[in-house]
Amino acid sequence: MADIELEGIRKVYGTAISTVALRGVDLTVPAGEYAAIIGRSGSGKSTLLNILGTLDRPTEGRMRFEGRDLFAASDDKLAEFRSGTLGFIFQFHYLLPEFNTLENVLLPYRIRHGRADGAAVRRAKELIEKVGVGPRMYNRANNLSGGEQQRVAIARSLINAPRVILADEPTGNLDTETSESVKGLLRAINREFKTTFIIVTHDRHIAAGCDRVIEIEDGSIKRDLSTSELSRDETWAELAPCNCREREDGRLPAAPPA
């Protein structure tokens, strides 16, 4: 059964001067899939992720989760849906600087349940150990390095045992080594908990490691590639057709040569 279905999603910003961010996207993501959304800046991939995360409402179109029409619900119902079903890993980590590592990881749990009981705290601690920031358990979020913050954000996204994790550039702003370990961590979580992952990324190394790569261009899906039948070289060739120069940080150049 399909977990997430998008149907004719359009998103237009502005009223006087309107910008079309998405022009009718149809997409189905089955449960447990490990998918990447790639595309250039301004292609609409972040907008798509925000709509998938119910943070933004589409101008037109519907989104179903397990058959349930989500955008028919109120903002509060959507908030409830987010805290119960979705996990977020944002590009800029977005921890609350007022809280320490453990408290940040417990935030989604406390939003949902009010108080964190012993079992929740134990689970949070396990997750923090699992993502490798155990020694920073009681450090304030703004005293952590970028990599540590991203790991804490990953632990936080898992605390409510979400069915779907939405990640926006989870390895952006991280060095290569940290980036590799975060990548491994996400994949391990996907395998262990059967959590659906939708990852927006510039990083073709990440994209190449996904089951499926969806490329967005000018607000539409340009390509929907299933990598499971392809060899690593074939995938690589598909993702970097012009064999463009690899930047030092492993990202694609901002604009491919014409």
Binding site: L55, D76, E80, R82, F88, L96, P97, L107, P108, I111
Partner: peptide
């Protein structure tokens, strides 16, 4: 506003 945005994204309701 950043913290408020994060809390809302994580599922905190308007009233809360």
């Amino acid at each position: 506003s950043r913290q408020i945005g994060i809390l809302k994204a994580l599922g905190m309701k308007t009233r809360q």
